[in-house]
Design a protein around this nucleic acid. Structure first.
Lengths: 334, 334
DNA sequence: TTGTATGCGTTATCAA
DNA sequence: TTGATAACGCATACAA
């Protein structure tokens, strides 16, 4: 592998000048630049990334922690992040946190140890205090899908409460009044915020929420199916169910089908996230669109702006979802 | 940030010794080790990754190129890779190739420029010759889901031909004889191999394949839906359809439903891949299981063994899929 | 078992 | 506009 020395030698200029044309960091006369460029080409020169990082104290890498690498949600998010980072010549190091506190902490340490210039974090098991202390230590990071008051400008989040609200409101507007809710694990803030939104919508329509109509599940389809079983078994009758995410909605629909109940004729189902698959279930799932790709883009832009000082980048911290009408909800008919 | 010098000074031992306890590369007496460890803790020392890479000529990073970051297939694959790499202290840099030749080449160059110790490549747009020349240049890489004779020991692949064969054979065994096929884009080797398998199975049952029963699509659900429309419109009657992947099967099922045809009562549908979602479609999709997570694991192990000289690792290069029976296929009844 | 000295390939600070 | 030269933080060959 050719080094900058060899380029310097072959082109007859100094080390420093080669570095200059490499980085465009200072004016270089056209003729010398020409010579250097040729030498680089001839030698098939590639700068050594580690040496650059060491000397410049900048690794040009961003670490990203997501709960899981698979699943449509994180896939779209990583995709959004990667595309803008890539266009900026930065690279993305990924790690999975598995929604487990120890694992998330380990992953963060791992990413830190790799010398990332900044971290993009989607964490749910770790505490606010931990994150705050990280911030105190000077670790550069941006949180996705989580909001901490004290470091608002480091949080890119969805208004989950609003999402939960419009989901249930869409059901109410369609005439439903007895609405069940299958929530995600309530220790996760997004899950509990969505449920809050549901309650707010219900309250707005003068419905006090019956606790038996709410089931706390785990964001998985199995969990959704289980929740529906339980609801069907023990809850008062209902004509619609809102789910904390799409996957649970899939499970719920399967469970309904197993009970010979038709969606949406007998029961309307509302999801949350708008996974790519929700357009291909049967019936196609009416849900709340989560602009996860956009939020991924924004997280990457945050890093470009705050870490790499790229100017002229419009940052946005709060995203609002909207309802996507498809076929799993229909007006209530007695 | 504390450096090794400061640790050396504070613990009263030499630089070299600190490095030794850091890497466990040579014997160090317990007392000195103790002093060093304490100093590290007191100073909250973290080795500088770039410096380590520069000095050791090893970045401890693996670059991975996948077609897309989203979608169940690549998600599972990355997940498999990450977990074993992570356990070994190596990190994963990811990039998307978008199944486009220029983009794939750019991504490979990008990854190379980042100093990855090795590359895990899922590419389909780039030519064998290109890959071979890369190999000739000394670039370390392993191919996933692609086989090139000349560098077999660098290829971890699924027997797609066999998969296509068992998919159609399952249909034939169920009594179907008039079987349509919705293929992926045939310039992709996996798509064409699967189709080959289909033809082999048909031939084995004495059926010569009617070209009108084969539709070349694009691996997307939309494409699958389109293919089914076309088949319904212009092909001779058929009682079953095998699809090049699950996503096209989803589209095909939707399209059948739109035509008031029931799956599997009127038409049986067979997928390929066993996406996580295939267990939640309606009807649940009978398909061919692609052990993509296992293959991801293996790709990572390949790197551990071949690049980092980790011994005692069993490598496997060929994976065989199997049929997963669910609800979208049923015995043919006149 | 420990220490010394050198090199890894850049960037960056000076001068010239 | 260019060139010396000193960091950057660590690994390692060699000596002790």
């Amino acid at each position: 592998m050719a080094t900058i020395y060899e380029v310097s030698e072959r082109s007859g200029v100094s080390l420093a000048t080669v570095s200059r044309v490499l980085n465009g960091t200072a004016r270089v006369s056209d003729v010398t630049r020409q010579k250097v460029v040729e030498a680089m080409r001839d030698l098939n020169y590639r700068p050594n990334s580690a040496a650059q990082s060491l000397a410049s104290n900048c690794s040009n890498s961003i670490g990203m922690l997501v709960s899981e690498l698979h699943g449509p949600f994180f896939g779209d998010m990583m995709s959004g992040v990667e595309s803008v980072l890539r266009a900026a010549g930065k690279h993305l190091i990924i790690a999975a946190g598995h929604s487990n506190e120890t694992s998330e902490k380990n992953s963060i340490e791992f990413l830190r140890s790799k010398g990332c210039d900044a971290l993009i974090l989607h964490v749910d098991a770790v505490s606010d205090d931990y994150l705050l202390s990280l911030h105190g230590e000077g670790v550069k990071f941006v949180l996705v899908n989580r909001r901490i008051e004290a470091i608002q400008s480091h949080c890119i989040s969805l208004d989950n409460q609003y999402g939960g609200y419009i989901a249930t409101k869409a059901l109410l507007d369609a005439g439903h009044r007895d609405i069940a809710y299958i929530a995600g694990p309530l220790w996760k803030v997004d899950a509990s915020e969505r449920l809050e939104g549901h309650k707010r919508a219900m309250a707005e329509f003068g419905r006090n929420v019956d606790a038996r109509l709410i089931y706390e599940s785990d964001f998985s389809s199995q969990g959704g199916a289980l929740g529906m079983e339980k609801l069907l078994d023990t809850a008062p009758t209902f004509s619609a169910v809102a789910c904390g995410n799409d996957e649970m909605a899939y499970g719920a629909m399967n469970s309904l089908r197993a009970h010979k109940l038709r969606v949406p004729e007998d029961i309307s189902v509302m999801g949350f996230d708008n996974n790519i698959m929700s357009d291909y279930t049967f019936p196609r799932l009416t849900t709340v669109d989560y602009p996860v790709g956009d939020m991924g883009h924004m997280a990457a832009k945050w890093a470009l702006h705050n870490i790499y000082q790229q100017p002229k980048i419009e940052l946005r911290y709060a995203f609002r979802p909207h309802v996507v009408q498809r076929d799993s909800v229909r007006p209530y008919a007695k």
